[in-house]
Simulated assay, not measured.
Amino acid sequence: MLIFKQSGPMTFTPMGVPGLESQLLWLSIPFTSMLLAIPIGNGAIIFLVVTDFTLHTPMYLLLALLMVADLISSLALVPKVLCLFWFDDRVIGVYACFTQMFFIHGASVVRSALLVAMAFDRFVAVCKLLRYNTILSHSLVGRLGLVALAKGVVLILPMPLLLQRLTFCHMIIPHTYCDHMAVVKMACSNTRPNRMYGLFVILLVVGLDLLLIGLSYVLILQAVVRLNSRDAILKALNTCSAHLFVILITYIPALFSSITHRIGRNIPPHAHIILANLYLLVPSMFNPIIYGIKMKEIRDKVAKCLCR
């Protein structure tokens, strides 16, 4: 068996969707549609928030930052996946692979941190409405964005660094992109530190972030229950509905993907791969749609731009 060491020049070969190689052309149709819709939808929201000063409020600024994270994640994924589906180009350099891994997983961590910040924003909007502008100033929103960015960089940067200590026996990645666990499974040296660190990141990001989001919504629910007016209750719930939808479509596929990588040995490989792609693409594609439908200001701005 040939052993490939990290010290020399090396390339990986993403094989796409194991078991469905002959169907890649058909699979490329929905994937291409999603990969093209993501930059359009996210770019439109970012453009509206940046260019319209009436949308320079904490809620919309955090929304724009979320769209930027989604856009970075999709742009890190798009080029290589489209080359694989359209041109059967399966070769990626090792450092390009690690760079793609860093941006995809880093953007996912930033997205999760921004969802926590948006939960805090909804808590202040419902429970501390009279002090909303005082508490959530533009400077605080900027600091929350920087904390989210720092969290993504600090937590994900060790992943490619730890991979460089490994010896790889296989160069074919059973995936469409350089997923951390997919690359770790190709190593024939001790991968325990990599697996433990990956699990630590998942527990810290998904576990802690979901705990903070859940705490915010418990406090919101307590405040809503104390409201006497039915209209006030419906208005408060409507204020949070878009954020709740985004949380569901972000964390549920991510949790399933993570669990199946570790304990889903009987799940077909192609199911692993498709699920891992969906947990990246579905939130990025549906976030602009959800916020566009649920937020009247964005609907009005989009309608105005289309009329022009």
Rank of each mutant, 00 (worst) to 15 (best):
P253T: 11
A69D: 09
L82P: 04
G198V: 04
L75R: 01
I220Q: 05
I202D: 06
L215M: 14
I46A: 09
M196D: 09
N238G: 13
A64S: 15
L71V: 05
L65Y: 14
L157N: 05
F103N: 02
I38E: 02
V154S: 11
L130H: 12
M196G: 05
E21R: 15
L237K: 15
I290Y: 06
G93K: 00
K128R: 15
L210R: 07
A125L: 03
G106D: 05
V81D: 02
P268L: 10
H272M: 08
L210N: 10
R195H: 09
Q100T: 07
A187E: 03
D89N: 08
M59W: 06
F103V: 03
Q6I: 09
G106V: 06
A69W: 08
R195L: 08
S7I: 08
P288W: 14
R165D: 00
G19N: 02
K235Y: 06
T167D: 12
F87E: 14
L144R: 02
L237D: 00
I289R: 13
I290R: 01
L27S: 01
A113K: 05
K304G: 14
A96I: 07
T13R: 10
A148P: 02
P79C: 10
A150E: 00
I220A: 09
D70T: 03
V282R: 08
V147P: 04
R131K: 12
I298C: 06
V147G: 06
A276M: 09
G8W: 04
K294T: 15
C97E: 08
K151D: 01
P158D: 06
K304C: 12
I298Q: 03
R122W: 08
M171Y: 00
